[in-house]
Simulated scan of single mutants.
Amino acid sequence: MTDAAPRPRRSVLYMPGANERALEKAKTLPVDGLILDLEDAVAPDAKADARKRVAAAAASGEYGHREVTIRVNGPGTAWHDDDLRAAAEAGPDAVVVPKVDSAATVVAVERALEAAGAPDRTAIWAMVETPRAMLDAREVAAASERLTVLVMGTNDLAKELHAEHVPGRAPLLTGLSLALLAARETGRAVLDGVYNDVKDIEGFEAECVQGRQFGFDGKTLIHPAQVEPCNRLFAPSPEQVERSRRIIEAFETATREGRGVVTVDGRMIENLHVDEARRVLALAAAVEGR
Results as ranks from 00 to 15, higher is better:
2 T>W: 02
3 D>K: 05
4 A>P: 15
6 P>C: 05
8 P>E: 12
9 R>P: 01
9 R>G: 08
10 R>A: 05
15 M>E: 11
15 M>G: 06
15 M>F: 09
16 P>C: 04
19 N>F: 06
21 R>Y: 07
23 L>A: 10
24 E>G: 10
24 E>R: 15
24 E>I: 13
25 K>V: 02
26 A>M: 06
28 T>M: 10
28 T>A: 15
32 D>Y: 11
32 D>M: 02
35 I>A: 08
37 D>C: 10
38 L>M: 03
41 A>T: 14
42 V>K: 05
43 A>G: 11
44 P>Q: 01
44 P>I: 09
54 V>Q: 03
54 V>A: 05
55 A>P: 09
58 A>S: 11
63 Y>L: 05
65 H>I: 10
69 T>H: 04
70 I>S: 00
70 I>V: 12
71 R>E: 01
72 V>R: 03
73 N>H: 08
78 A>V: 15
78 A>K: 11
79 W>D: 14
89 E>H: 13
90 A>F: 04
92 P>Y: 11
97 V>M: 04
98 P>F: 09
99 K>R: 13
100 V>W: 01
100 V>G: 03
101 D>H: 01
103 A>E: 12
107 V>Y: 03
107 V>A: 11
113 L>Y: 10
115 A>W: 07
117 G>Y: 10
120 D>W: 01
123 A>V: 03
129 E>K: 03
129 E>L: 04
131 P>W: 06
141 A>D: 09
148 T>H: 11
148 T>A: 11
153 G>Q: 02
153 G>P: 08
155 N>I: 11
156 D>V: 04
158 A>T: 03
158 A>S: 15
161 L>Y: 02
162 H>M: 03
163 A>D: 05
163 A>L: 07
165 H>E: 15
165 H>Q: 13
171 P>S: 09
172 L>C: 03
176 L>D: 08
176 L>I: 06
178 L>H: 01
182 A>C: 14
183 A>I: 09
188 R>I: 03
193 G>E: 08
194 V>N: 05
194 V>D: 07
196 N>M: 14
197 D>T: 10
197 D>G: 06
203 G>P: 07
212 R>D: 00
214 F>V: 08
219 K>N: 06
220 T>D: 12
221 L>C: 10
221 L>M: 02
222 I>E: 01
224 P>Y: 06
225 A>L: 14
229 P>T: 05
230 C>L: 14
235 A>K: 02
236 P>V: 01
237 S>D: 06
238 P>I: 01
238 P>A: 09
239 E>G: 03
242 E>Y: 09
243 R>Y: 13
244 S>P: 00
245 R>P: 11
252 E>I: 07
256 R>Q: 11
258 G>P: 08
260 G>M: 08
263 T>P: 00
267 R>D: 14
268 M>F: 15
269 I>K: 07
271 N>C: 01
274 V>R: 02
275 D>A: 12
275 D>N: 12
276 E>Y: 14
280 V>P: 00
282 A>L: 00
283 L>H: 09
